[in-house]
Nucleic acid binder design. Structure first.
Lengths: 201, 201
DNA sequence: AGCGGTATTGACCGGCCGGCCAGTTAACAT
DNA sequence: ATGTTAACTGGCCGGCCGGTCAATACCGCT
């Protein structure tokens, strides 16, 4: 049994607890996680968890806060990189979002858990993101680059939900007959989506 | 306290337990449900639950089996009603699926729980459904009624996943700025989807 | 050096969880 | 009537859950 370092580092301890908690909560869900298990995983005592976070529930809140903050800043960064709105940029935004979810499965599962809890925790942050995305679509519509008879928020919603569900329900449809790889599906989705949002020729 | 009827009816008892269990599991998830609570809700003793179902886990399996069977037969009935494949029928199939989910929120949550558990429980049944749907799309493609450069299974997947996520993540996006009602979203999704799957004119 | 504060520990607690079992009662076949 | 089977009950149990608390170890400040 390797001894813990003698020096104290409360921030590192908090981070270790948060990391272990995120892994377990994301894997098993809030009520299935046992504090004893979590303490073992984080290599701290149970009491220390209570000392730093108060209760299991507050810890769960902290985990969600931290993860959503990460999600939000990543998305905002992507959004700010975007330049002039046009169809090609919409396509690459969808690709970027899809690949972000692929590379961050924890975020996907966290969303799923909060959906089931009816938790709209990341509400304000998300409203900002969606608002910015919708505004972006609206500008492209004004310029005649996207069809104008659809609600811009719905355009965002369609691709966000398709990408999200692709990864949330992976275990469900990955064995469907004829189903392709991540990239093959994205390719076909983009064919349908892009053809559906450009103005009718 | 109303007395239970003196006559015995094991099937009714089983059904009562299954009903109560479905309600609780769907609401709270497997590990958050307590057998004592379930017994109270079903108006039976805890022992009786074990007598009929063995364990909490087996009960959860039974609940899922029953619910997925219902889902499967409903979907199969809808599929068999479908006639000649064409674009209009695809549209009405999407509408039917969307409204089915709207009217069966338990099914939606059940799917979400099983996704998080990595449970591919309804695998075989679903493969049949998806296979039939994809075959239907393939025929429409042969006849030139749908574009031929997309995987038929992906066409099914796109609309199934969008509809599913719309209801699974309702609490998440229902407050997004500019988001419309169920029907308004379905309308816009269909505009995009249908325009995306018909052959380019 | 001495002190205050807090990070950290381990022992402990009340409560309740899922599950079990011995016993009772209704249904039914003969 | 009587024996058999299975539905049903109440009481109980071992274990572990989240949480508490007094005691200790370490750090920063003066």
């Amino acid at each position: 049994m390797s001894q813990r370092p003698q020096t104290r580092d409360p921030e590192l301890t908090r981070a270790r607890i948060l990391d272990a908690a995120e892994a377990l909560f994301v894997e098993q869900g809030f009520s299935a996680v046992k504090l004893s298990e979590l303490a073992r995983a984080a290599e701290v005592t149970k009491s220390l968890i209570h000392h730093h976070f108060g209760s299991k529930e507050q810890l769960w809140e902290s985990v969600k806060n931290r993860a959503f903050e990460r999600y939000f800043t990543a998305q905002m960064a992507m959004l700010e990189e975007a330049g002039e709105p046009d169809a090609a940029l919409l396509r690459s935004s969808v690709e970027a979002y899809f690949h972000f979810l692929r590379d961050n499965p924890d975020v996907v599962r966290l969303f799923a858990w909060t959906h089931l809890e009816g938790d709209n925790h990341c509400g304000e942050l998300d409203n900002q993101l969606v608002g910015a995305g919708a505004e972006w679509v609206r500008q492209a519509q004004w310029r005649g680059l996207l069809r104008q008879d659809v609600n811009p928020t719905h355009v965002i919603a369609v691709f966000v939900m398709t990408c999200t569900q692709w990864f949330e329900a992976k275990c469900h449809h990955e064995h469907w007959p004829g189903m392709g790889s991540d990239e093959a599906f994205l390719e076909d989705f983009l064919k349908i989506f892009m053809e559906g949002v450009v103005p009718r020729g």
